[in-house]
């Protein structure tokens, strides 16, 4: 068991590294005032608006937020259901 524990611990990054990674995300969301919950709301509304005009695959929609050194962006990835795909 000890042996397994040690093995497992090695695969997990040290806690200082985990802290830094968590902070990177938290600060990005704080700074833009965009919470993970808001991203879900945005996603639902985007699905509603787009699907009124274009057939899309709601399951495949992804709305993400990224922060770079110069700019932050919201990226919506919306897979469209094409006629071809439906046939295949």
């Amino acid at each position: 068991m000890r042996f397994l524990d040690r093995f497992r611990r090695r695969r997990q990054p040290p806690s200082g590294e985990i802290a830094r990674e968590r902070l990177r995300l938290v600060l990005a969301h704080d700074r833009a005032n965009i919470s993970p919950g808001l991203l879900d709301t945005l996603k639902d509304e985007i699905i509603a608006v787009i699907s009124r005009h274009v057939p899309i695959d709601p399951e495949g929609v992804r709305v993400t937020f990224t922060e770079g050194p110069r700019e932050s962006r919201l990226v919506a990835d919306i897979p469209i259901q094409t006629g071809r795909r439906r046939r295949g």
Binding site: P14, G16, E17, R20, L23, R24, L27
Partner: peptide, 17 residues
């Protein structure tokens, strides 16, 4: 000591964040 073993954030990481 904690920084050395990876269990506390490096100062460089805090400054960068």
């Amino acid at each position: 000591e904690m920084v050395r073993r990876g269990d506390m954030m490096e100062t460089a990481a805090v400054v960068e964040l």
